[in-house]
Design a protein around this nucleic acid. Structure first.
Length: 125
RNA sequence: UCAGUAGAUCGCCUUAUCGCUGUUCAUGUAAAUGAAUAGAGGAAAGUCCGAACACCAUAGUGCAAUAUAGUGGUUAAUGGCCACCAACUGUAAAGUUAGGAAAAGUGCAACAGAAAGUAUGUACAGGUAGUGCUGUAGUGAAAUCAGGUAAACUCUAUAUGGUGCAAUGUCAUGUAUACCAGUGUCCCAAUAACUAUUGGGAGAGGGUUGCACGCUCGAUGCUGGAGGGUAGGCAGCUAAAGUGUAUUGGUAACAAUAUACUCAGAUAAAUGAUAAGGAUCCCGAUGUAUCGGGAUACAGAAUUCGGCUUAUAGAUUUACUUACCCA
């Protein structure tokens, strides 16, 4: 798996996202939360990922955009280390639930913790 | 030089590594890969006006509602903009204006004053038989006079249909089917109310990997069409009331001509991340040139334009005004 995040890897389908929030399970490492759902799709990727920041916590579109970009970047750089061995297809949604604007280092650290938790949760069940 | 007035411009830069979206080219059956190239703003914001564009509605007239309000110009259009006049503010450069009507009607008015729009007091003088009456004094912006006020109702004049690109058009997987056409079911046994139930057999055709076998569904079936328009795709979508420069006309807003250029197009939504160096500003230290620390605003396209309003660290620049200094 390479450090990319192209159109195919993005979670775009509205129905799938709705399904994800209704049926999906979640793990969190404050201020991040990961909602995930094992599923099937045609594209040749293991995981489809979306990111989201609440409008309630960040009023300006500039702030939301920046946090979403940081989340995507952290996902892009770290996914190879954690998800190479996964065989099931998953839909991911990474939420930022904090109220302060973070730095990239914070986000990256928390992303790693989040993925470790996810791996644990999945291997248990 | 100091203080100020009115505009204009910019609003971090460079390199490296790793990424994202569009377009073009190359390779490839395709998926994709590679290369080149482009990729947020002055307000992209608020959604407050005005249009383009699309769809819906629409005989005519009136009422209501809303907006606008000196004069002239400008524009696709405007409630915007420009010029001039008037009033007010400022030493000035300039700024502000809610600048139609008080002789249609209703309402409102501090202090002073006897009385303020339904008023007729007091003193003195004039006049009269006497009262009414006339003048003066006193309060006030205003005292018997068709006062003031329309950022009070109101009246007058003018204008106004509605919804917004999630408009609208188009392609259409799958699923379901009350539509149309074609094709397709029979046998045995039991029960029983002779057309049903149960059990067994055959079975056109469909599904499953292109074929065969096998498996499986199977008469409310199967095939085709039509309709519908969900998921999703495409168009709308960016070459235009376009941008730069020059010349001409106009006090100006603006217009005309010439010439050059092509400048985001995403859709859970690209335009980014990290590192190093530099620039500017602020603070502190001293050896006055360096070192250390900090800061670099407001803010993110979503159909497209023209305005308005609001936010904005810091920097550059033009014209003008007042005061002081020099000649």
């Amino acid at each position: 798996m390479e450090a990319t995040y192209s159109k195919k890897e993005k979670l775009k389908s509205k129905t799938l996202i709705d399904q994800l929030f209704v049926e999906g399970r979640s793990v969190s490492a404050f201020p991040l939360r990961l909602v995930f759902l094992p599923t099937n799709f045609k594209d040749d990727v293991i995981i489809k990922t979306g990111v989201s920041v609440s409008k309630r916590n960040f009023k300006h579109a500039v702030d939301r955009n920046r946090i979403k970009r940081l989340l995507r970047e952290a996902y892009r750089l770290n996914k190879a280390a954690y998800f190479n061995n996964i065989t099931t297809q998953y839909a991911f949604m990474i939420l930022y639930i904090g109220k302060k604007e973070p730095t990239f280092n914070e986000i990256e650290l928390k992303t790693k913790q989040l993925f470790e938790k996810f791996i644990k949760t999945v291997s248990k069940s």
